[in-house]
Design a protein around this nucleic acid. Structure first.
Lengths: 227, 227
DNA sequence: CGTGCACTTGACAGTCATCAACTTTGGTGG
DNA sequence: CCACCAAAGTTGATGACTGTCAAGTGCACG
């Protein structure tokens, strides 16, 4: 059983839509679980999967071809929701990119609970609609943008979305993953991704103080570059 | 006001979740409207937009860059839902690909109504989750598949999704749009799309009896080609 | 201090976009 | 019914971009 009172994302997660007693009932169904970086929580096509809230860490949603190519189709941050309610199979793989902590529910139980709590469903609907908008805009990037536009768009998106940006925006930010993962997000190879970053650094658009740190120097030009 | 009793998609649209009197109330809010092929129903960034059910025809959801490149991010068929509930702006352009007929609602009114009718919201949630799954799988295609894989995947997807497949599956099907649109769906140019189709025809995988008609001869090989 | 892994850089090749010309289709009017 | 026209589709030549393969660098770890 989860200890909702101490939950770091209590205010932002879908649970926030519930009254105290309702939250308590849901809490009894949930279980906290740690996931190590690189560990997979849900496999594509998994039967009888679970759903979960993310408490900390970053996870990725991955779709892969038979021959091993991977495309990251979504990033999941703290307070975000994981899993596929109302379906027997998970449509994609969910893997932790950093050490993470999640609050897990049995899907069947969760579905039943959701059916009895319209507010929870409404929250879920809002989130799903937002995710759909994000996914569709990403489709534009994947289908129509060049490598340089992709990388520029990516950096702007990450600056905006990454939680706990230390230094408050002007101090740059720290990516929670490496070059290969960036490539898998953008539909590029690691080499192309790398070259674009190097060029942006030589052009003075960004600083790359360490492997995973990024600081955008000229936001206007990066935005122009993003198309 | 719509005449729900004569609605062609009454059983399949989200309205099907409502009781008779509820449906009547919703019906009083809706208005039937014809949209000609090529006409745009909703512009990206539109304020105060509407939502709608599709009664007949096919529409596309489009995201465009400033310099005019377009990516089709979704296709909308009869009984599908159009628009963005609970948001002020439409996140993408909605354009009719064929002559179409839709049942339009004022978004604000619809949102209010949905808030009072959990069953409708649940139906909407289910649909949105399905759309999200579809969009994410399409991201894999856009980001990681080659031109030939894209075209093969496209044909299989269309064969499955197209309504009113005359001849019951073995007789092939008729695309509701031209080559440029296929290219915009797949993130390719029209020339590349065309060449791939020509090659598939020469290889005997498909017949292309007319501009828009397709017949898959060797489904297994097309599926293998789709990756 | 050495080892391994992530990252970077380079050379080359293939795929797909671009530009251009040509063909077919479908519609219109004589 | 046929001729003509515009739009859609097809084909070809060429080149840019990005993927592939390979080697090298630098950082973190033991």
């Amino acid at each position: 059983m989860s200890d909702c009172a101490s939950c770091a994302v209590r205010c932002r997660a879908i649970c926030a839509s519930l009254a105290v007693d309702e939250a308590a009932e849901l809490g009894r169904m949930g279980r906290r679980q740690r996931v190590k970086a690189g560990h997979t929580l849900l496999w594509e096509g998994d039967e009888a999967p679970t759903v979960a809230n993310v408490l900390s860490g970053v996870l990725k949603l991955v779709v892969a071809t038979a021959d091993g190519r991977e495309q990251i189709v979504g990033l999941v941050f703290p307070s975000d929701f994981i899993g596929r309610p109302f379906a027997k199979q998970s449509p994609y793989r969910v893997t932790a990119m950093t050490d993470a902590e999640v609050c897990i529910f049995n899907r069947q139980q969760f579905d039943d609970f959701a059916g009895r709590h319209p507010h929870l469903q409404q929250k879920l609907l809002h989130r799903t609609l937002d995710e759909l908008d994000r996914a569709r805009h990403w489709m534009m990037l994947l289908g129509r943008k060049s490598a340089s536009e992709k990388v520029a768009s990516f950096l702007l998106d990450m600056e905006e979305r990454l939680p706990g940006d230390p230094g408050g925006g002007s101090g740059g930010f720290e990516l929670p993953f490496g070059r290969q993962q960036i490539a898998d997000i953008l539909g590029l190879t690691i080499e192309t991704t790398c070259r674009q970053l190097t060029r942006m650094r030589s052009d003075g658009l960004v600083d790359l103080p360490s492997r995973r740190a990024v600081r955008i120097n000229d936001r206007a030009r990066v935005a122009a570059m993003a198309g």
